[in-house]
Design a binder for these strands. Structure first.
Lengths: 226, 226
DNA sequence: GACTAAGCGGAGGCAAAATCTCCAGATAGG
DNA sequence: CCTATCTGGAGATTTTGCCTCCGCTTAGTC
């Protein structure tokens, strides 16, 4: 792979350059997980043990580095959803999906920011819309059809549930890392189809389109990618 | 009040100065409600139709202006809690407390930031700890004693419930202002004492002290006050 | 109506943070 | 041993927010 001929695109990297590139990616992975996306490319470079110049020669800007890490960060989320969909027990699938998803977000602050629509770029937004939203819908539909979930719940609810729990997660991360699970299970008790009368909800769920508009890239100046 | 002799503290303000002071407070009230606490004193001055210099002569810094508004912002919250405590129906009291509290936070982004422990100063933190925390405990205790609330719920839960809902509120504020109520009521269904078996919660509630440590002023550089 | 203490406006100084550039020297690899 | 490639990190640049300074204006008094 190192010496492969440039397949029409770029020259191959010199060996030291390739090594540094890997170091940068590893450092970024670590720093994004620990501190979220507002770390500096300078910090990443320092952590990787290379100069800032090297970082900027390899990745034009922070966004590019972020994109290089994007797929591996989100693959885990998608896997968690797929696991849920193959769980023989639809309710158990739903619960473990939320548990796994949030546990990942506990470990990786950057991932939490993506899921919460915090400081996302277009790419992340598309991923939410095109990959995760259908999975969420399917997970919910399956549980609802099995009669274990209130039937006024929709796929978009999973998005907002995670936004809310993420806020708790963000505050308690340091001292009480699993506090969010308390509120997750409280909420799950509210989501479960009970034999009694399900109190009607006062507000309708958002449609998929509305959700993605709400969660979409903030129009904040700076175009969020910079 | 305008011409009152300086009661041992300061000189009385000239009439134009007093007028400008009021204008500044009104502008700040408005801007903090609309955009939260990260508005600059320059913006407040501009909105008030006075120069920046005037703003800084009247309030030494942003924190001081904030403090001048602080009591009126928080009085409403305390009133909502007191209303809840005098409600003949403890469950209804709890529900309307959360409804009112969050409705206030919908109207006032600055208040939302205080409640969520976002960018608070010492004063706000003390208020949470000394004023609101006991009220929260009382509201919960009353409902629990009446048997309408799961008995593993504590006063600190009300804090985190609001943190979570606030995050939803913050995202949906523009297009779907009342979306948070959907999740509030879902959660309330989980909080209510059901005749059936209450699923045990996997994580204990935080104590008051732990809560205030978690929600406390972030140790962020800049001392959060300005 | 004129005098003065008090107040006014807003240009701009200052500082912190983040992004990215530049280039003299080091190094891989033929 | 030669050169295309890569390296480090000082610092230029930009952005953003906080606050000060000072020449001019005005309220209020004698």
């Amino acid at each position: 792979m190192t010496e492969s001929a440039p397949a029409g695109s770029q020259r191959a990297l010199r060996r030291d350059a390739a090594r540094n590139r890997e170091r940068l990616l590893a450092a970024a992975r670590q720093l994004f997980a620990d501190h979220g996306f507002d770390v500096t490319l300078d910090e990443v470079a320092h952590r990787a043990g290379v100069g800032v110049g090297t970082a900027y020669r390899r990745f034009a800007n922070k966004g590019e580095l972020l994109d290089a890490l994007f797929s591996e960060q989100t693959a885990e989320m998608a896997a968690a959803a797929d696991t849920a969909l193959t769980d023989p027990d639809p309710w158990h699938g739903l619960v473990t999906y939320l548990e796994m998803s949030l546990a990942l977000q506990l470990r990786d602050k950057g991932l939490a920011q993506i899921v919460s629509g915090d400081r996302v770029g277009v790419e992340q937004h598309d991923w939410n819309r095109q990959v995760m939203a259908p999975k969420n819908r399917a997970i919910v539909a399956r549980a609802r059809d099995a009669g274990v979930l209130r039937d006024d719940v929709t796929g978009t609810d999973l998005t907002f549930v995670q936004v809310g729990l993420n806020a708790i997660l963000a505050r308690s991360r340091g001292a009480h890392p699993d506090l969010y699970r308390r509120y997750l299970h409280l909420l799950l008790d509210g989501l479960r189809a009970e034999p009694g009368t399900p109190t009607p909800l006062p507000v309708a769920a958002l449609t998929s389109d509305e959700t993605h508009a709400v969660m979409g890239p903030p129009i904040t100046p700076g175009t969020a990618r910079g």
